[in-house]
Amino acid sequence: MLRGTKVGLRARHADDIPVLMADLYDDVVAGSRAQAAPWRPIAADSKDNPLLVDDKAAAHVPFSVVELDGGALVGTAALWGIDNHHRSAHVGLGLMPHARGKGYGSDIVGALCHYGFVVRGLNRLQIETLADNTAMLRAAERNGFAREGVLRSSAWVLGEFLDEVLLGLLAADWRPATADRTAAAPES
């Protein structure tokens, strides 16, 4: 498990999927704002379920996000579009409604930076988010991401085109938090 100060990023478990479907994916507005493809209803047991983990998809590393205090499932996180030649990837996350506004986003972004830069040896991480997603913009900037541009009217969301902000962070510019990002040693 990767650890931040408030949350941990761990492998997705089969019993996470129905919870994530009900509390995160089935929220049509949030799902439409978070996905590049149009929202559509998908059963938790569908083979097309976007929350299923394909262990052979090397360019996409999904995590389930849990609170460190108590282990409650609070969302998802991923590095996606991993390009090993150019040593770059994209950062994404989704928090369940009850977990929003608690500072988890910044913690998740920090843990994903650790994973990308330290564990994977990447050189660049990138975030694309809707221009009105102030929570994600804050989480990115708190972790050192710089705004690199605006993609005008690039996202079709629930009947309108919205701007996206492009943010980037290079390994050389990253300043890691002091949190232990790896699993604690087992107690004997």
Score class of each variant (00 low, 15 high):
residue 4 G to L: 15
residue 4 G to F: 11
residue 5 T to R: 05
residue 6 K to F: 05
residue 6 K to E: 14
residue 8 G to E: 05
residue 10 R to Q: 08
residue 13 H to D: 07
residue 14 A to R: 13
residue 16 D to W: 11
residue 17 I to F: 07
residue 19 V to Y: 01
residue 19 V to E: 07
residue 20 L to A: 12
residue 23 D to P: 00
residue 23 D to F: 11
residue 24 L to E: 09
residue 26 D to F: 14
residue 27 D to M: 15
residue 28 V to H: 14
residue 32 S to C: 02
residue 33 R to M: 03
residue 33 R to C: 01
residue 34 A to T: 15
residue 34 A to M: 13
residue 37 A to C: 11
residue 39 W to H: 06
residue 43 A to R: 07
residue 45 D to S: 04
residue 46 S to M: 10
residue 50 P to H: 02
residue 50 P to S: 12
residue 56 K to I: 06
residue 59 A to E: 08
residue 61 V to Q: 12
residue 62 P to Q: 08
residue 64 S to M: 04
residue 68 L to W: 00
residue 70 G to T: 12
residue 71 G to T: 08
residue 71 G to V: 13
residue 73 L to F: 08
residue 74 V to I: 10
residue 80 W to T: 09
residue 80 W to E: 14
residue 80 W to S: 04
residue 80 W to Y: 12
residue 80 W to V: 14
residue 81 G to A: 10
residue 82 I to T: 03
residue 88 S to K: 03
residue 89 A to Y: 04
residue 93 L to V: 03
residue 93 L to H: 02
residue 94 G to W: 00
residue 94 G to P: 00
residue 94 G to F: 00
residue 96 M to W: 02
residue 98 H to S: 02
residue 100 R to I: 05
residue 105 G to T: 09
residue 105 G to W: 01
residue 106 S to G: 06
residue 109 V to K: 03
residue 112 L to H: 09
residue 114 H to M: 10
residue 114 H to T: 10
residue 115 Y to A: 05
residue 118 V to F: 04
residue 119 V to P: 00
residue 119 V to D: 02
residue 119 V to K: 01
residue 121 G to D: 15
residue 124 R to C: 05
residue 124 R to F: 07
residue 126 Q to Y: 08
residue 127 I to W: 01
residue 128 E to N: 13
residue 129 T to N: 02
residue 131 A to R: 09
residue 132 D to N: 10
residue 134 T to L: 10
residue 136 M to P: 04
residue 136 M to E: 15
residue 136 M to Y: 09
residue 137 L to N: 06
residue 139 A to K: 15
residue 140 A to E: 03
residue 141 E to A: 02
residue 144 G to H: 02
residue 145 F to T: 09
residue 147 R to D: 03
residue 149 G to N: 07
residue 151 L to P: 04
residue 152 R to V: 05
residue 152 R to T: 07
residue 156 W to P: 12
residue 159 G to Q: 01
residue 159 G to P: 00
residue 159 G to C: 00
residue 160 E to T: 13
residue 160 E to Y: 14
residue 162 L to K: 04
residue 163 D to M: 01
residue 163 D to V: 09
residue 163 D to P: 11
residue 165 V to L: 15
residue 167 L to S: 00
residue 167 L to G: 00
residue 167 L to F: 03
residue 168 G to T: 11
residue 170 L to D: 03
residue 172 A to I: 05
residue 173 D to S: 13
residue 175 R to M: 13
residue 175 R to K: 06
residue 176 P to V: 05
residue 176 P to W: 11
residue 177 A to Y: 13
residue 178 T to W: 11
residue 180 D to F: 14
residue 180 D to G: 13
residue 180 D to S: 06
residue 187 E to H: 09
residue 187 E to P: 13
residue 188 S to A: 03
